[in-house]
Every structure is written in C-alpha cells, then in structure tokens.
Simulated assay, not measured.
Amino acid sequence: MRSYKKRLGFTLVELMIAMVLGLVLLGGVLGIFLSNQTTNRVNNELASLQSSARLAFQLMSQDIKSAGFSGCNNSSRVVSIITGAPAWSQWQGGLEGFAAGTNGLSESLRLMYGAGESVSVSTHVPPVINTNASSTLNANDIAMICDDIQTSIFQVSTVTATTVSHAMGPALSCSADLGYQSPLVCADPRPRIFPSDSMLMRFESVLWLVAESTDDPTISSLYRQAIIAGNVVTEEVLFGVSSIRFAYQDGDLPFGPANFSAAVQMGNVTGVQVTLVMDANAYANANLPLEMRTIEFFASVRNRLR
C-alpha cells in the first residue's frame, strides 16, 4: 500500500490573512513614526520660537527696568538741547506708550534712560566738561549730565581723555548752553553750569515696535530702534511677530495692568506687561495654535518702585 508524506506550507487564504495583518501592523508603525515626526517638528519650531523670544524679552526687560533713570533723581526736570526736538530726545518721564499704528503696525513703547558707565564732573566751563576719570563717550554720542536740580541732554562734539565738549559746531546740539528752561527754546538759550560731582553718562532712547520684515514683507517682525552717534538705527530683533500689546501697571493702584488708553497715567507706571503674538505663517511647518504662539511677560520699572 502506497503512503503519502504530508506536504507543509501555507494556503492562499492563510497567506492573504498574514499579508493583511502585516499591512495593519506596518500601518500602525508608520502612523506612530509620522506622529513622532510631527511632534518632533512642532517641538523644534516651539523651541526655536521660545529661544528667539527669550532674547527679545531679555533686551526689552532691560530697557523697561532702566526706564526713567537719569542718575540724579530729578526726572521731573530734564532739558533737551537737541536741534528740532525729535521725539527720541523729548523726555516724557522716561516711558511713553503709543497706540497701534502710531509707530509701525501695532502698539509701541519708548523708553529713555541714562546708560553705560557714568563719570563724575570735576569742573564745567562751557562748552567743556572736565571729568574725574576717562569717559566711555565718543564724539557724536548723545549724552546726559545731571545734578540734583536738572538733567540736560546734548550731543557730544569732542572728547579727550578727561574732557567732553558740548559745543554747537556740526553737532545736533542747538546751543552751546545746557539751558535751565524746559522745554528749551533754542532761539533763547539759557546758560547752565553744572557743579562738581555732577554725573555724566550716555543717553539711551529706545523704541520697541512691530513693522514689516526686511526679509519678507508679507510677515512682520519685532524691531528695536535706538540712537547711535546721533542717528536713528532700527534693528530687527525677532522675525515673525504679528502683533505686540502693552499693559501698564499704575503704582498707585492694586495689581492689574491696564491696556493702553489715554486714561493711563504714564508717569505712575511701575511695570509693563508685554504680550507678543507670533505670526502663524512664520511657523507654518508646525501649525502652532494661537496659545502656543502667544508669549507674555511682565517687567518692573526699577526706578519707580517704592
């Protein structure tokens, strides 16, 4: 009697079931892979956004904290000797907010203060200020000199080892006098001689605003506008900012920053809350939701805290 050995193998049905199960498993693996890729892309975009925003906030916080510092506690009497009285030279207590569209596309904020390493005055024989140490100021810098009575803002004409001159010449200063009337009338200058131990330092005037990006006009950016050697220099700090909002804390009121309006008493502001909204088009690869694109921080005005 002939015997047959049973042949081992898969039937067509079994093979099809195995293929379907394999495809299902592969689909799950691919789904997890694509999900991880998307998550990784979002995390990278978010990390890039946060890193860039952190630098902007550090710069802005430093400006806000320093606002109003004149070196001699006399911020109520500041005289500008700058020709034409440009907005950047007109002291408004060191902090001034603007409505949307006044400067750039969104709200904006101007901050003024004395910066850098200060030096004391030994004698003042207009237009020459003699100092007790070498100054870090250079010709054409905007500077401020102060005593307990007054602060004067002027452009430096010349500098030597221990002297700083405020002569008219080709500089922006409209007078060789440092004036004692505020605002100064350049056609009617008033002399002001600062006593020994007055303080001399660089004058900083900064405007934060949002405007079209220089790289892509369809996307806006955050800018810091400063005065360097008498010239307005605008630096693009953070690409892809669709808007910026400021809220102001009145030092005479309980905590609760108020949005910009004519009712805000800028002279009483002791802190500023800043809200940045990043442009979705600048982070299109990650499709970040609005809450992830909205970044907020609060900075105190150190010189007004009491």
Score class of each variant (00 low, 15 high):
90 Q>H: 01
165 S>D: 15
213 S>Q: 09
44 N>Y: 01
200 L>V: 04
301 V>P: 08
292 M>E: 14
146 C>S: 14
289 P>Q: 10
153 I>Y: 01
261 S>I: 09
148 D>R: 13
300 S>Y: 13
283 Y>L: 13
18 A>F: 10
58 Q>A: 08
5 K>T: 13
159 V>A: 05
38 T>Y: 08
46 L>F: 06
96 E>Q: 15
51 S>R: 02
172 L>I: 02
28 G>R: 05
115 A>W: 02
121 V>A: 01
253 L>K: 13
44 N>D: 07
89 S>D: 03
178 L>E: 11
50 Q>H: 00
31 G>W: 05
109 L>K: 00
220 S>T: 13
60 M>H: 00
152 S>T: 04
90 Q>S: 03
34 L>H: 12
129 I>Q: 02
51 S>G: 03
101 G>S: 03
46 L>H: 08
115 A>V: 00
245 R>W: 03
149 I>R: 11
43 N>T: 12
240 G>Q: 09
126 P>C: 08
166 H>M: 15
302 R>L: 11
304 R>I: 14
33 F>E: 04
293 R>N: 09
137 L>R: 08
62 Q>M: 02
201 M>Y: 02
166 H>Q: 13
261 S>F: 09
186 C>S: 06
86 P>F: 06
126 P>H: 04
134 S>I: 02
68 G>E: 00
240 G>R: 05
19 M>W: 11
92 Q>Y: 11
274 V>M: 12
145 I>K: 02
36 N>T: 01
114 G>N: 06
294 T>M: 10
12 L>D: 02
103 N>H: 15
80 S>A: 04
213 S>M: 12
80 S>D: 10
194 F>M: 00
27 G>K: 00
33 F>D: 04
208 W>E: 05
41 R>L: 15
224 R>Y: 07
213 S>C: 12
173 S>N: 11
126 P>Y: 10
287 N>F: 14
93 G>W: 06
201 M>H: 01
10 F>K: 04
42 V>F: 01
137 L>M: 07
34 L>E: 03
75 S>A: 12
169 G>R: 07
219 I>H: 09
289 P>S: 11
97 G>D: 03
6 K>M: 10
289 P>K: 10
113 Y>H: 14
88 W>I: 01
81 I>H: 01
86 P>V: 05
301 V>G: 10
198 S>H: 13
228 I>S: 14
182 S>A: 05
255 F>T: 04
232 V>H: 02
38 T>G: 07
43 N>R: 08
197 D>L: 12
170 P>M: 03
295 I>G: 00
105 L>H: 09
190 R>K: 15
76 S>Q: 14
271 G>P: 11
249 Q>D: 14
277 V>M: 09
282 A>L: 04
150 Q>P: 01
248 Y>N: 04
304 R>Y: 15
291 E>Y: 12
136 T>M: 10
108 S>N: 11
227 I>E: 04
21 L>N: 04
